[in-house]
Amino acid sequence: MEDLLNAYDMSLIRTAAVMVIMALSLNLITGFCGQISLGHAAFMGVGAYTSVVLSINGVDFILGTLAGMALAGILGILVGLTSLRVRHDFLAITTMGIVFLFSGIVEQSSFLGDTDGLSGYPHPAYGDFAYMVMTILLAIAVMLLSIYIRRSWMGATFKSIGDDEDTARILGIDVSLYKLAAFVMGTSLAGLAGSLYAHQTTIIQAENFGFIESITVLSMVVFGGVGSIAGVTVAAIVLTLLPLWSQFIGDYKLLFYGGLLFLMMRFAPYGLAGIVVRLQRLVFRRTGDTG
């Protein structure tokens, strides 16, 4: 099987797998728990920078990744704490601010490479193919985790908070605790995606984890259907690969993403999952008529 894929194909698959992890991790926060985040890429950046700085200092890839996840998760708790104080539009702008704080601090820190970023750091010695298989397995693991969470008691609690926070509180749900839980899980998984991303490319810069990247991830969640695991996974794969396959979409990637976000919100605000549900209803109604 190793011969069937060339290096380029493998890099496409790895990138798609990383973006699936990214999109699903945001889906935990925004989709399951209803907390909008316009700054998710910053946590990916925290994971990437932590893991790279550690690997430059001779720390093993797996340990570095775990450290990246931990640090992203800790910062996620801090942002989660703001979500306990501010809501809705206030939260959206606060999370947007996190991206600018992240890039503003990284670009002024010489040990993080200023605006030039970090490059020439050691990669894990797995080889391209094994690395690709690992990212795919991790993406599948994150999918399974998402499914497990949604089916669990915690998933139901998240949904109640997302639907109506005040009612959830009246029902005796510890809203703060569960919001923080969603932020910790989502942001540490973003840290995982960041570390995986950093070690499959040769340079990381603050601008790789900026506002536009955060919006790209958000557009995957929205395109797939906020909260839908299958929808978000498909959307992450399609939206990652399309700009790489089609020259035109690649050149005008932002026009494409932006237009897509806008058209989706305008005509199908519940995303791919919403379209599937609508089609199902159409089919069922038709069979109902004939039967």
């Binding site: 932002l254 993403y257 932006g258």
Partner: peptide, 18 residues
């Protein structure tokens, strides 16, 4: 409200590319 917010961001990015 998040629908309008995301639509607005999408429009912004698309116009910028325009």
């Amino acid at each position: 409200p998040y629908v309008a917010l995301i639509a607005s961001i999408g429009l912004f990015i698309a116009m910028q590319e325009g």
